[in-house]
Design a protein around this nucleic acid. Structure first.
Length: 314
DNA sequence: GAGCGC
DNA sequence: GCTCT
């Protein structure tokens, strides 16, 4: 069936939303995008004031609405983060980009795979996981695969997982899938917590036992922002750290932060440093700092650099 | 701060 | 990007 979503008065760029690197597993077919939402195949097309959805069940219009964050009041969000010319320009260029609400398990697995990787490599790893452990779906003659459940991955043999060539991330996926499958960690419950409670659960207590192997503050922030609607989460990857060091250093003028600023541009940053920077960004941009992050991230990735450059690191 | 695995 | 030493 084909459904129509009314998005008049709702700025929405499907292109920007799907191309910004927050979600994986979508492909373009002409002017349509095909992918999987809530384990069901969909094709989506944004056309002015309507979003067209080809799918199998009528409930998909609500699911697509939720998935693409169409409930967010983007205009007021962008107004609220418009603190300086840089973010205003980023918002102008990437206008319509929305933060998705992906499935939390898929998002967690995705960002475990993203560690020290790049978009095309991540895409490859995830498609291998889908093909090997997901369920095959058809939408017309488009073949799609659901993202494998934690349960399916927890039962995978080590050899099967190794065949997906995740490298050192294999054990992160194995451990996380087991903890989620066993119910030891219930991501839907985590998503009900406040941002600060939820990030604590995901990264574990400092110095204490880690909750989820491979989940540090960056991975946790991505999961919180891209799947749990914690719009104040500010994932700090190399691009954002460089940007902060160059364009937002005034937020760290105090002398004690000299060392932190230097490390932001170069390499390793401590958990403490990460917290200081992301909290400063939250204080500066407010409760929608995650939206600010995503627009700035896109802006600098594509700024006078080729797409190839932009795809280098995560 | 090196090493991880592809 | 995270873990481990």
């Amino acid at each position: 069936m084909e459904l129509s979503l009314d998005v008049s008065e709702k700025p929405f760029s499907l292109e920007h939303t799907l191309r910004c690197g927050q979600v994986f597993g979508w492909r373009q077919r002409g002017e349509w995008w095909v992918g999987v939402v809530n384990n069901q195949p969909v094709a989506v097309l944004a056309n002015g004031n309507v979003v067209k959805v080809r799918c199998e069940h009528a409930s998909m219009s609500d699911e697509v609405f939720n998935y693409f964050g169409l409930g967010d009041n983007l205009e007021s969000i962008l107004t609220s983060v418009a603190k300086d010319p840089l973010i205003v320009e980023a918002a102008r260029q990437w206008y319509g980009l929305r933060i998705c609400r992906q499935n939390p398990w898929e998002c967690l697995a995705t960002y475990l795979c993203s560690i020290d990787s790049n978009i095309s490599k991540i895409e490859l790893c995830l498609s291998r996981l889908r093909q090997r452990f997901g369920r095959r779906l058809l939408l017309g003659d488009e073949e799609l695969f659901t993202f494998p459940t934690a349960d399916a991955l927890s039962k995978a043999s080590e050899a099967d997982l190794t065949a997906c060539a995740l490298g050192f991330r294999t054990r992160y996926i194995m451990q996380a899938s087991r903890r989620v499958a066993s119910g030891e960690i219930i991501l839907e419950e985590v998503s009900k917590l406040s941002y600060s409670e939820a990030i604590q659960v995901l990264i574990g207590d400092e110095k204490g036992t880690k909750n989820l192997l491979g989940v540090g503050p960056k991975v946790a922030d991505c999961v919180l922002l891209f799947s749990m609607g914690k719009l104040e989460a500010v994932p700090l990857d190399v691009w954002m750290r460089r940007l902060v060091a160059r364009s937002y250093r005034h937020l760290f003028e105090a002398e004690q932060y000299g060392r932190l600023l230097r490390r932001l541009e170069e390499g390793t940053i401590t958990l403490r440093g990460y917290r200081i920077v992301s909290e400063a960004m939250r204080r500066y941009f407010g409760p929608y700092a995650g939206y600010a992050q995503e627009y700035l991230f896109q802006h600098i990735r594509y700024l006078k650099g080729s797409v190839a450059d932009a795809r280098k690191n995560t």
